[in-house]
């Protein structure tokens, strides 16, 4: 089957369907589900349905009313997906709001609100976030710039730090530099390195509890190192 490509410059509407390439610059709407090899948007792009693409690039204000399922992609600006996000590789910078995220490599720089779990091989978040579910990955790396929240963190290696460099994007914009903290019910993993985490319980094999942490109970198998600038209620080995 021959696949069409479509391009909008200015303002326009595209019908849903299967395309080779979809390119929208300016303001564009896709009515219905769309599938494309490549989806590019600059400006205000709304998909009134689900989007499936191998390559995905948007900047400006992007919104999908259904799911987003991509091989790899990048988004900058405002990124909204009302359904679930599935991506082998996805990098977002700016403000993201979406349902659950599932994938290989997920990186969000800025502010993220996710309704559901974030599950990937690697998850890197920097800035601030509210995740209603579990953040789970072989490697979870978090750089905090403002008050953040998740239900649980789980995986192999989990590292949570307060942004210590010159301050990230948000810190510079809103003067929140140095206010980063993470509130979570539980953290579980093999190697944990935590700073500025407030948690009911932390369970791990090798655990480092750094400055700013307030942890109700730490259960560890191999080693526990707790900073004098951290509060730990109970320490249990085994």
């Amino acid at each position: 089957m021959d696949r069409k490509s479509i391009s909008i410059a200015g303002s326009g509407k595209v019908e849903g369907g299967v395309y080779d390439r979809v390119k929208i610059s300016g303001s564009g709407k896709v009515t219905g589900d769309v599938e494309a090899e490549e989806f590019k948007g600059a400006g205000a792009v709304t998909v009134e349905g689900s989007l499936r693409a191998r390559r995905f690039d948007v900047s400006g204000a992007f919104k999908a009313e259904g799911d987003l399922d991509i091989e790899e992609g990048e988004a900058s600006g405002s990124f909204k997906v009302e359904g679930r996000v599935t991506a082998r590789e996805l990098k977002v910078s700016g403000a993201a709001k979406c349902g659950p995220i599932q994938g290989g490599y997920i990186r969000v720089n800025g502010a993220l609100k996710a309704k559901g779990d974030i599950e990937a091989d690697t998850v890197r978040l920097s800035g601030m976030f509210k995740v209603e579910g579990l953040i789970s990955a072989d490697r979870v790396e978090i750089r905090l710039e403002d008050h953040s929240k998740a239900r649980e963190l789980g995986g192999e290696v989990i590292e949570v730090r307060r942004e210590s460099s010159w301050g990230g994007l948000l810190g510079r914009l809103f003067g929140t530099h140095g206010k980063g903290s993470l509130e979570v019910e539980a953290v579980e993993g093999d190697e944990l390195d935590l700073e500025w985490v407030v948690a009911e319980v932390v369970r791990g094999r090798v655990v480092r509890i750094g400055p700013g942490c307030r942890i109700g109970r730490v259960e560890y198998q191999e080693s526990l190192e707790a900073s004098p600038e951290a509060e730990v209620g109970e320490e249990v080995k085994g």
Partner: peptide
């Protein structure tokens, strides 16, 4: 922990088997 979470993510262990409970020693 890493293996357990990985297997869960890959769908090897069904979501429904994870039963979260609040206990006196935390979630």
């Amino acid at each position: 922990y890493g293996q357990l979470y990985r297997w869960k993510r890959k769908g090897l262990i069904p979501e429904a088997w994870f039963i979260r409970k609040a206990t006196p020693t935390g979630q």
